[in-house]
């Protein structure tokens, strides 16, 4: 019991004193767990960063990507990435980010190509994840670039070597979280308690008119927006 208590206290204190202590890894250890083997790391460490870190060896062309896409992806995402029904749209939407109904796709919205490779490799095709070879994923990523007009030559080959050179058009339109600068957050004065607005409240919009609540909604009722993501 007392043996167990001590290291606990020390860790608590070192963290309080400075996060750097814990960071440097010189806090107390419990000697639990075992060292991961290289094969285990290889099996699970599949993430890819925008600078190309984590990319496996491999390559694939637009033309080959089209074949794989037609067979494994088009049933949900459409022949040209335009989507079937309510499955996600993968291409198009350029110039719609300020429109009433923005269409956020790889070409119109995504900041980095690495995300396409990483995500398709880890989660697609939906229902059969991790079934594609690394070369297949390169080819599909190349084809998605082609569907989004980022590359125009169907002989284009994407590989580990040229991957990090490719930029997606919307990369520079992402900004840091600046919510605390918004006027209603920056202004921390006491809110009004009495006679805060002049006239009696009048209704501007009813949810009932749209009637999209499940209990009362018909099958065809659709919300004004595309739902949650």
């Amino acid at each position: 019991m007392s043996k167990f208590r001590k290291p606990l206290l020390i860790i608590g204190l070192s963290v309080l004193a400075s996060a750097a202590t814990a960071l440097a890894g010189d806090g107390e250890h419990f000697k639990l767990g075992r060292v991961a083997t290289p094969d285990e790391l290889l099996a699970w460490d599949i993430d890819v960063r925008p600078d190309g870190l984590g990319l496996p060896d491999g390559r694939g062309t637009v033309a080959h990507g089209m074949e794989i896409f037609d067979e494994n992806c088009a049933s949900c995402h459409g022949d040209f990435g335009e989507a079937v029904g309510r499955w996600p749209v993968l291409a198009g939407g350029k110039g719609t980010l300020q429109a009433d109904r923005p269409e956020k796709t790889i070409g119109s919205y995504w900041p980095y190509l690495s995300t396409v490779f990483d995500y398709v490799r880890r989660a697609m095709p939906f229902g059969n994840a991790r079934s594609l070879s690394d070369d297949d994923v390169y080819a599909l990523t190349a084809y998605l670039l082609y569907l989004n007009d980022v590359v125009t030559n169907d002989e284009f080959e994407l590989s580990k070597e040229n991957f990090a050179d490719i930029k997606l058009p919307n990369e520079t339109n992402f900004i840091d979280d600046d919510r605390t600068k918004e006027p209603f957050y920056a202004d921390k004065s006491e809110p009004c308690m009495e006679n805060c607005k002049p006239d009696k409240a009048t209704i501007k919009a009813h949810a009932a008119i749209l009637d999209v609540t499940p209990e009362d909604a018909g099958e065809d009722d659709q919300p004004a927006n595309g739902g949650i993501e």
């Binding site: 923005p102 690495s114 990483d118 992402f174």
Partner: peptide, 13 residues
């Protein structure tokens, strides 16, 4: 890592 859920999703247009 700029994963799908911090680029395509969970970013505020």
């Amino acid at each position: 890592w700029q994963q799908r859920e911090e680029t395509s999703k969970y970013t505020d247009l």
